[in-house]
Design a protein around this nucleic acid. Structure first.
Length: 847
RNA sequence: GCCCCCGUGGCGGAAUCGGUAGACGCAGCGGAUUCAAAAUCCGCCGCCGCAAGGCUUGCCGGUUCGAGUCCGGCCGGGGGUACCA
């Protein structure tokens, strides 16, 4: 009987389906919810998907064997820009494109034999899903968690449309090539910053999250304590008597040499009304995209308003308008202290402003600020110069706190906690997203749609032949009656950020067909997600938004309190990086091509024969040029080979590299296991002395493979399975002992290669499905070793070794070590300077 | 720019708590089997060196009896940077 993957895999997939093995049921068993981040339906699955979903499948199948009722669902993150881009590029409709892709990808995923409950599948672009999302939105609006505010967007002045950051390349619109400018629109926003403190403090409870993710979120939320104070204007202007600033370094007030306000600051706007030069400056610095990176790396520029403010420490400070001050953070105004801030120093040098030290290095002989600002860590001792609060030699931390206390006593300002986290702007001027269910009435203003009218459906008759939002220019869609007064009114034509769709899908999976967002009994039973698996690229936004949404859904009664942190454990798998294939048009602009549209052997675009560039050049490598089609691999070697290979070799948290040799080698190994099982099934040898050793090896394999799965180290489990297979293959044990070992091997392999495991399980006379058999347990008695070999180091270098009984005490080990030839030679008759014995580990002789 | 992560043989990687660096796999080399090959099985395999021995975890420095692991500083690569998902 040969290893025929096609028939074996089809047979077992049919048997699992027949038995409804993966249907998640609420019952008396403890539950386990394992979830992989759902895919964007881009067109075809790639080997990264295979890896991601195989990891989740290993956990799901392992937990099933451990007696849990497992929920392992799958869906589609189906709204988003690529569908509109496809419609623009080649006609067609985003809806058709998306559902066609979903069909293709589902068809590619099913042959992998994943333990998914497909009865719960949904796409976020299903009206049944986004209608419930609209209901959530309305409840959050009611709870004060959504509001409208001005927000800055990338504006393409030629296409007259809003661009995503991705569509701004080197400050220019990707299609028009026009220089992008920042423009303010009124947008809907979630009040995520109102929960900043809780989102920050609760990170400490997420013990089963990677430290790096918690750290990134902590830095992103960015709690800071500082001083908010007002500098009185020397002469009031346009109704402003002062400039309110926020600073995290009030201890540098002595070194302040200017005030800088954002170009969007109310004072700057007021002044610009009758200062054409300032208005021109404000327009000028509005050029470019909205990303933090663009703002941070832009040249620092300023405009002197000619106004001055009174410094509470005496004298006056000039008021500048500066492009590096953000209206969205703090008060939109700062004081500049060039001596202790590099950006302020660069600004001061450029515009010839004074540089005054507020403190100098501790016990420094002389001190002068040159090209670099003096910015020691806040934990370092410094010597303050003439500090108003009277501090002298202390740390920055102390200096800040003392100065805040002083400022409060003097009535100059107040200590304040500030977060970097901004509210989440959710409005998008795009078609392929969840419509925001509100109506603009000329009389009643902004009015929520009635829940009984949900879902507010997207119209199908739209075109993408001109830039801009098809909803906005649709002839009839927006026309409606005001839900309050019945007058003619207009629907909101913005749709929601697609991050909203992915912020609650995990909750919807617990009751995917319900006629309300969630069902209490189902979320009570299934929440929280016990193990969430996905890419580290989602470490901040998606995970933070989901944490916020879970809280908001708790406030609005859609989730229990226990689900305020929805993901009990998080694993971030290695990134799947794609090389990008690029050609340039006649204007030198880059055009990207899908990997499958590129012929790598000739380095050209298949359709046009144009030569491609591969970017980024540094990432270019033989392996990354390999574009692997999972379907071809399954056809050639079977799903089990693909599954085993993506789990072997690379640790799950690191990037994975596919090599054709590796896949072939895996197939060879699985064929060998199958042949070994066939041989063992037929064998007829009497019990003998080797049986006990094989039993010990089996116990070790159980312990080590289980430990690997528990610790998310599938590559190590795979290595141990190789070892155990080699041991079993070479064992002279009797037929029954080898059958027992083979049956255990099938169980241990089952989470990784479930089809082959079922086949072998049956061959070995196992009852039912291997998946339904309880996970094997290692007999502790068989794991105990009675002696241990200790390496002997001499001066930290390994020179010899000694084998001693496992429980031998230090004195006994010392005696054995002193009798070792290498030690005797090294000591040359003398006594060791030091003898370090770490029982069970190592011996180090210092001579 | 800022935040986070990673760097070990020809290659993917192992070393779980500061304690034998290189498990396991790939590639390579040698052998058995074969008329021959494929397949299979057995063995070797970090670098320098005939050997004794020396060197070796991106680079430089530090702590320690002992550092791939801890600390400081560099270099290189990756991710995120709020409208890619």
């Amino acid at each position: 009987m040969s290893y025929d993957t096609t028939s074996i895999e089809a047979k077992w997939q049919a048997a699992w389906a027949e038995a409804d093995l993966f249907l998640a049921t609420r019952d008396a068993r403890p539950k386990y919810y394992v979830l992989e981040m759902f895919p964007y339906p881009s067109g075809r699955i790639h080997i990264g998907h295979v890896r991601n979903y195989t990891m989740g499948d290993v956990i799901a199948r392992y937990k099933m064997s451990c007696g849990f009722s497992v929920l392992h669902p799958m869906g589609w993150d189906a709204f988003g820009m690529p569908a509109e881009n496809a419609a623009m590029a080649s006609g067609g409709h985003p809806k058709e494109w998306t559902y066609r892709n979903i069909d293709t990808m589902r068809g590619q995923m099913k042959p992998l034999g994943l333990s998914i409950d497909w009865s719960r599948e949904f796409a976020t672009c299903d009206p049944e899903y986004y209608g419930q999302q609209q209901a959530l939105f309305l409840d959050m609006l009611d709870a004060g968690l959504v509001y409208r505010k001005p927000a800055v967007v990338n504006w393409d002045p030629v296409d007259m449309t809003v661009l995503a950051n991705e569509q701004v390349i080197d400050g220019k619109g990707w299609r028009s090539g026009a220089e992008v400018e920042r423009r303010e629109l009124t947008q809907w926003a979630f009040a995520i910053s109102s929960m900043a403190e809780d989102l920050l403090d609760s990170l400490g409870d997420l013990e089963n999250w990677p430290d790096k993710v918690r750290l990134m979120q902590e830095n992103w939320i960015g709690r800071s304590r500082g001083l908010q104070m007002t500098f009185p204007l020397s002469a009031p202007v346009h109704g402003h008597d002062g400039v309110e600033i926020y600073t995290t370094r009030p201890d540098t007030l002595r070194g302040a040499s200017f005030i800088a306000i954002a170009p969007e600051h109310p004072l700057a706007r007021a002044l610009a009304q009758d200062d054409a030069e300032l208005a021109a400056f404000a327009t000028e610095v509005r050029r470019g995209g909205t990303t933090e990176e663009a703002l941070e790396t832009a040249e620092k520029r300023g405009y002197d308003t000619g106004l001055t403010v009174q410094n509470p420490l005496g004298g006056t400070l000039p008021v500048w308008v500066a492009n590096f001050v953000l209206m969205e953070y703090g008060t939109g105004a700062i004081f500049g202290c060039p001596a202790h801030d590099q950006r302020d120093l660069d600004f001061a040098r450029k515009y010839d402003l004074p540089v005054v030290a507020a403190f100098k290095p501790y016990e420094a002989e002389s001190f002068e600020v040159g090209a670099a600002a003096y910015v020691p860590p806040k934990t370092e001792l410094v010597e303050y110069v003439d500090n108003p609060a009277g501090v002298h030699r202390t740390t920055g931390h102390e200096g800040v706190e003392t100065t805040i206390d002083w400022a409060e006593t003097q009535g100059i300002g107040e200590g304040r906690v500030q977060y970097r986290l901004r509210d989440w702007g959710l409005s998008r001027q795009r078609y392929w997203g969840c419509p925001i269910p509100v109506v603009h009435c000329p009389d009643c203003g902004v009015v929520p749609e009635r829940k009984e009218n949900l879902p507010v459906r997207l119209p199908d008759d739209v075109t993408f032949d001109v830039p801009g939002n098809p909803l906005d220019r649709h002839p009839t869609w927006a026309a409606t009656a005001c839900p309050e007064c019945g007058a003619d009114a207009r629907r909101e034509t913005d749709t929601m950020d697609t991050f909203v769709d992915s912020s609650w899908y995990f909750a919807r999976f617990t009751a995917p067909r319900a006629d309300k967002p969630t069902v209490a009994e189902d979320v009570d039973y299934w929440m929280n997600v016990d193990q969430y698996i996905g890419g580290v690229e989602h470490a901040i936004l998606h995970l933070l938004y989901s944490r916020f949404f879970a809280r908001a859904m708790n406030v609005t009664g859609h989730l229990p309190a226990k689900a305020r942190e929805p993901f009990d454990a998080l694993f971030t798998q290695g990134m799947v990086t794609h090389p990008a294939y690029v050609t340039r048009d006649d204007k030198g602009r880059t055009i990207y091509h899908l990997p499958e549209d590129v012929d790598l052997s000739s380095g050209t675009v298949r359709a046009t024969g144009e030569a491609i560039e591969i970017v980024p050049a540094i990432k270019m490598s033989k392996s990354k040029l390999n574009v692997v089609d999972p379907q071809a691999i399954i056809a050639q070697f079977g799903a089990d080979t693909a599954r085993w290979f993506v789990l072997s070799d690379s640790p799950p948290e690191r990037d994975f590299e596919w090599t054709p040799e590796g896949a072939a080698a895996v197939h060879k190994h699985l064929t060998r296991v199958h042949r070994l099982a066939t041989d063992i099934a037929r064998a007829d040898r009497a019990p003998n002395d080797a049986d006990a050793e094989l039993a010990r090896a089996t116990a070790r394999a159980i312990a080590e493979v289980t430990q690997g799965i528990d610790g998310f180290a599938f590559n190590k489990s795979v290595a141990k399975l190789y070892e155990f297979t080699n041991t079993l293959s070479r064992s002279d044990a009797g037929a029954q002992a080898r059958r027992d070992a083979m049956r255990t091997l099938a169980q241990l392999m089952a989470p990784m290669v479930p089809h082959l495991a079922e086949e072998i399980w049956t061959m070995m006379g196992g009852e039912g499905f291997v998946l339904s058999a309880p996970w094997p347990e290692a007999d502790p008695a068989l794991l105990v070793e009675d002696s241990v070999t200790l390496p002997i180091q001499i001066n930290g270098k390994r020179r010899s070794e000694v084998t001693v009984p496992k429980d031998m005490d230090k004195a006994g080990i010392e005696a054995r070590v002193m009798a070792d030839d290498a030690v005797i030679r090294a000591l040359d008759g003398g006594a060791p300077k030091k003898l370090i014995v770490v029982p069970g580990r190592i011996v180090n002789v210092v001579v």
